[in-house]
C-alpha cells in the first residue's frame, strides 16, 4: 500500500472510530452515564457552607497586598494579649488575698506550696 501515517493522523483515526460507534452502543453509553449521575456523591451541608464561607472571607484578604500575613499577625497579637491578661493578677485579686490572710480564712491548699 505504501501509506504513511504520522501521530496526528493515527490519533485522528482513533478519534474518528470513537465518534462512529454504533448507535446502539452510544445509546447504552448515555443510559450508563445517566445511571452514574444519579449516584453522584453530594457534598454535605457543612462542606457547602465552608465552600461559600472561605471565598467570602479570603476575598478581602487577597485584595490587600499583605493579605493573610497581616491577618495572622493580628490574630497572634490578640492571642498574646489575651494570654498575658489572663495570667496577670489584678489589684482586686490582691485585696481578696490580703483579706483572707488577715481573717485566717485562707484555704488549706494555699499553704501546701
Amino acid at each position: 500500500m505504501g501509506i504513511k501515517l504520522n501521530r496526528e493522523e493515527l490519533t485522528a483515526l482513533l478519534d474518528d472510530s470513537a465518534h462512529r460507534l454504533p448507535s446502539a452502543v452510544a445509546v447504552r453509553l448515555s443510559v450508563a452515564r445517566r445511571a452514574a449521575l444519579q449516584q453522584q456523591a453530594q457534598p454535605s451541608r457543612f462542606q457547602v457552607r465552608l465552600h461559600q464561607l472561605v471565598p467570602a472571607l479570603s476575598a478581602p484578604m487577597q485584595r490587600h497586598p499583605l493579605g493573610w500575613n497581616v491577618a495572622l499577625l493580628c490574630l497572634f497579637i490578640l492571642l498574646a494579649v489575651a494570654f498575658f491578661q489572663w495570667n496577670t493578677p489584678t489589684p482586686h485579686d490582691h485585696t481578696e488575698l490580703d483579706l483572707a490572710i488577715l481573717t485566717d480564712d485562707l484555704p488549706v491548699h494555699m499553704y501546701v506550696d
Partner: peptide, 28 residues
C-alpha cells in the same frame, strides 16, 4: 470521555458487552 473510554475497554477486553460493563462501572 465515554466513547473513548469504551474504545479503551474494547481494545483491552475484545468484548463489546464486557467493555460496556467496564465503562458503566467506571462511571458509577
Amino acid at each position: 470521555v465515554e466513547r473513548r473510554a469504551y474504545k479503551h475497554a474494547a481494545y483491552a477486553v475484545r468484548d463489546e458487552q464486557a467493555a460496556m460493563d467496564i465503562v458503566q462501572e467506571a462511571m458509577i
